[in-house]
Amino acid sequence: MTTRAPALLVLEDGRTFRGESYGAGGETFGEAVFATGMTGYQETLTDPSYHRQVVVQTAPHIGNTGVNDEDAESGRIWVAGYVVRDPARRVSSWRARRSLEDELAAQGVVGICGIDTRALTRHLRERGAMRVGISSTESDADALRERVLGSPAMTGAELAGEVSTREAYVVPAVGERRFRVAALDLGIKTMTPRRMAERGIEVHVLPAWSSIDDVLAVAPDGLFLSNGPGDPATADGPAEVLRAALERGLPFFGICFGNQVFGRALGFTTFKLGYGHRGINQPVQDLGTEKVEVTAHNHGFAVKWSTDGPRYEAVDTPYGKAEVSHVCLNDDVVEGLALRGTDGALRAFSVQYHPEAAAGPHDAAYLFDRFVELMERDRDHQRVATS
């Protein structure tokens, strides 16, 4: 049986949990959030959207299937810290190459185990996401809390540039290339360009700070904005690029942070959710079809749809008529946006959740097909206009 050092977790409001060290020893700080998925912990850990967040897993048993070399969503673990109740004592999967704890330790990720994660999750649901510290070197809760209060908050944090690729790269289409897309990497997951490549799209992944000239230099058939960490109110550059693309009529698709940037580009604001949506089991309704999808989420901010008319009434923007396309059935938060031209045809759209579903259900995979249809229709219109 593994002998573990004592560890301490302290929230900024003073709530304290004592457990045992898990992963690397030391001390770490971040925003405490909880994720409700019963599977997919490797994808969660390597999702850049979790940068500077301490993830609490609500599922009690974590690490059973170890870590493999295929399921990572980026080249490293991004979480600032990790909280589990009962870590697996042994790995049981033919795909595993090492244990989860060994991977956490190797990448310097400080964690804690053996605490009541249900009580911690209930506290965060009632009080909201907040800053937290984990330490295996400090036993004084008051001293650790002082350092927690001195750590940066998530509101106002500009983090997309910290997780973005430094150099542009290309994910080639699988089979015949049908379209070329410029994708702004605000914290993109590996599976996202792969899902597009499966549909014949050549994806040019560009750094978060790219300009509209950088986008147009790719000669794209469409623009994509990815998921990512931090406060969308700081994403002035990507919002400016998107406005310029919409002015040119470039088909657009956005996911998660990209949805929030789309809202900003259309003239709306964003706000911080109480404790966010994080997990692979979140119900969302498509307002057009009234179909309910079970979806994968990871976001702490959302678009504020502020109009004087009825609930989610469509509004005119400089680029067309904007409407809410999807809502969360748990709390009625905006989960998707659509932009239509004067002819009523779809010009651009986005969703707040993750249709690439790594990990998660595949209910929303059709959105990649919708992006293909959008680019096909735009190409057909261009052919008619030039004929």
Rank of each mutant, 00 (worst) to 15 (best):
S93N: 10
V83D: 08
R89H: 15
E103D: 06
G114N: 12
E103F: 01
E103S: 03
W94D: 13
V110N: 02
W94P: 02
R90E: 00
A106S: 06
R98K: 09
S99K: 11
V83H: 09
R98L: 06
L100V: 04
V91I: 15
R95C: 07
S92N: 14
D102L: 04
C113T: 08
V91A: 12
R95S: 14
Q107R: 12
A96P: 08
L100P: 01
G108R: 05
V83R: 02
R89K: 15
V83S: 07
V109M: 03
P87M: 09
G108A: 10
D102M: 04
R89Q: 11
S92T: 12
L104D: 08
A106V: 01
P87E: 09
R85F: 03
R95A: 15
R98D: 01
Q107V: 01
S92W: 06
G108T: 06
G111P: 00
D86E: 10
A106T: 02
V109A: 05
V109Q: 01
R98H: 05
G114F: 05
R95E: 13
A96V: 14
V110C: 04
G111E: 04
S99A: 11
G111A: 09
R85H: 14
S99F: 06
D86I: 05
W94Q: 13
S93I: 10
D86M: 07
A88S: 14
V110Q: 02
S93A: 14
C113Y: 12
V91C: 08
E103Q: 08
P87F: 12
S93R: 13
G114V: 06
A88D: 00
G108M: 09
R90G: 01
S93H: 11
V91Q: 12
G114Y: 12
A105D: 06
A105L: 03
G108S: 05
D86V: 08
A105S: 09
E101D: 05
E103T: 04
R85L: 02
R98F: 02
A96Q: 08
D86A: 09
E103Y: 01
R85S: 10
P87Y: 13
R98I: 01
R95N: 13
V110E: 00
V109T: 12
R95P: 03
I112Q: 01
I112H: 04
S93Q: 10
R89E: 00
C113E: 11
R89I: 00
